[in-house]
């Protein structure tokens, strides 16, 4: 009975160690995924805003002959294009980066 309980304890400790190391690797994987997602989300949120105001100031400064409405339109279109480029980058990364890590895991 004593040996049996010892055996059970040993097995349990081994499984617990495995679970712990697996959890640690999961945590590091989650951390790297969080970094990537956070980077792309901040890119998608801030890139169009920065593009809008940078383009507006820059274009206004460069071409004074343009009317204000045209400057506004140009900066809005530029912001939307920058937004879609950032979204395309994220979708590309999620599609190919995700499959790459999965194959590495296997």
């Amino acid at each position: 009975m004593n040996t049996k309980s010892k055996k059970g304890n040993g097995g349990g400790g081994d499984a617990g160690h495995n679970k712990l190391s697996k959890q640690q690797s999961d945590d590091s994987k989650d951390y790297s995924a969080l970094k990537v997602v956070l980077f792309y989300c901040s890119l998608i949120v801030f890139l169009p805003v920065v593009t809008f105001f940078a383009l507006k100031g820059y274009v206004l400064e460069r071409f004074f002959t343009m009317s204000e409405i045209k400057v506004n339109i140009g900066s809005a279109v530029g912001a939307v294009i920058a937004l879609h480029i950032a979204l395309g980058l994220y979708v590309y990364r999620a599609y190919f980066g995700g499959s790459k890590t999965q194959s590495k895991q296997d």
């Binding site: 999961d26 995924a33 792309y40 998608i44 949120v45 979204l87 979708v91 599609y95 980066g97 995700g98």
Partner: peptide, 28 residues
């Protein structure tokens, strides 16, 4: 399937972009 989180965030990002459209027009 926690390893699919990065792929599955995409609808949330796309919903956020809708709000940016409204923001651009409101600022204009």
């Amino acid at each position: 399937r926690p390893e699919l989180i990065m792929k599955s965030i995409i609808p949330v990002v796309m919903a956020g972009i809708i709000a940016i459209y409204g923001l651009v027009v409101a600022v204009l």
